[in-house]
Computed example of a mutant assay.
Amino acid sequence: MTAPWWEATREGRLLLQCCLACGHTQHYPRALCTGCGGTDLGWRESAGRGSVDSYTVVHRSPSPEHPAPYVVARVRLDEGPVLLTNLIGATDWRCDQRVRLAWRELDDGRRLPVFVSDPP
């Protein structure tokens, strides 16, 4: 179910699942539309811009693979869906701050979507 999403990350594309019946856009990929319950689902590419909905700074990491401090955030994409992600780069984050998509490389060639500040 998530294979097309992960494959698109290899190309630096953030896909959102969309319902072909009602037009609802959602993330994370799943079997049913959260808008109408339909199963006729497709994909559309996100422009990769949004706003910080909420965030927290983690000062004590649960593992050495995630050196602290780091920022965990909810980013509301301009297309509507919310992603749980990391904010990188800036240190003066605030709610409603505009952000844009960046990528964190994984060892197997896939990428994770992260966000950086998007100044006006």
Rank of each mutant, 00 (worst) to 15 (best):
residue 92 D to N: 08
residue 65 E to A: 15
residue 74 R to I: 11
residue 115 F to M: 10
residue 22 C to K: 14
residue 90 A to S: 09
residue 85 T to Y: 01
residue 101 L to C: 13
residue 30 R to D: 11
residue 99 V to P: 00
residue 7 E to A: 14
residue 39 T to L: 08
residue 99 V to M: 00
residue 90 A to H: 02
residue 119 P to M: 03
residue 2 T to R: 08
residue 80 G to R: 15
residue 23 G to S: 05
residue 38 G to L: 13
residue 39 T to K: 04
residue 67 P to N: 14
residue 99 V to L: 00
residue 42 G to I: 10
residue 50 G to F: 06
residue 77 L to S: 05
residue 53 D to N: 15
residue 100 R to F: 10
residue 16 L to A: 01
residue 96 D to F: 03
residue 113 P to N: 04
residue 65 E to C: 15
residue 113 P to S: 01
residue 46 S to N: 05
residue 70 Y to H: 12
residue 73 A to P: 09
residue 89 G to F: 11
residue 28 Y to K: 09
residue 81 P to I: 08
residue 117 S to C: 09
residue 89 G to A: 12
residue 108 D to M: 05
residue 78 D to M: 03
residue 70 Y to F: 14
residue 110 R to W: 03
residue 83 L to D: 04
residue 81 P to G: 10
residue 14 L to T: 02
residue 88 I to A: 08
residue 114 V to L: 04
residue 119 P to C: 03
residue 113 P to K: 01
residue 3 A to E: 05
residue 39 T to G: 12
residue 88 I to C: 11
residue 58 V to H: 01
residue 6 W to L: 05
residue 76 R to C: 04
residue 70 Y to N: 13
residue 49 R to Y: 03
residue 32 L to M: 12
residue 4 P to C: 06
residue 119 P to Y: 02
residue 35 G to L: 13
residue 45 E to K: 06
residue 87 L to H: 00
residue 83 L to P: 00
residue 58 V to S: 06
residue 3 A to M: 09
residue 48 G to S: 08
residue 101 L to P: 11
residue 98 R to S: 05
residue 82 V to D: 01
residue 21 A to V: 08
residue 13 R to K: 15
residue 99 V to G: 00
residue 78 D to C: 07
residue 112 L to M: 15
residue 88 I to H: 04
residue 100 R to C: 11
residue 101 L to R: 06
residue 86 N to E: 03
residue 40 D to H: 14
residue 24 H to E: 04
residue 63 S to H: 12
residue 49 R to H: 06
residue 105 E to I: 12
residue 114 V to G: 09
residue 53 D to T: 13
residue 16 L to S: 01
residue 83 L to C: 11
